[in-house]
């Protein structure tokens, strides 16, 4: 039997995983997470998948464009602001 103090729940483990990314776990917490991941396949998947998400997010992009009306409005705004008063 593992001592009770080394056991963490899945809810805690999934939180620890985010903190681990930023090296914000104490040694005791790191040990607890390590032991939990040894026995919990679900949290292990969560761990892999959240790392994967972090990589994926960086590739996020959009092709959105301003309409020509929006651009004309911006140009007029700049024109007004730069013309001598």
């Amino acid at each position: 039997m593992m001592p009770q103090t080394f056991m963490i729940t899945c809810k805690e483990a999934t939180l620890y995983i985010s903190k681990k990314e930023e090296h914000k776990l104490s040694i005791a917490e790191r040990v607890k997470l390590f032991m939990h991941l040894l026995i919990c396949g679900f949290c292990k998947l969560f761990y892999k998948q959240s790392r994967y998400l972090a990589i994926e997010i960086k590739h996020l992009h959009t092709n959105a464009e301003l309409s020509s009306t929006d651009k004309t409005n911006l140009e007029q705004l700049i024109e007004r602001e730069t013309s001598p008063k």
Binding site: H61, T62, N63, E65, L66, K71, L74, I78
Partner: peptide, 12 residues
């Protein structure tokens, strides 16, 4: 030239 050069990039 701001609108022409940068507005879409800033907007995205």
């Amino acid at each position: 030239e701001w609108v022409k050069n940068y507005s879409d990039t800033l907007y995205r």
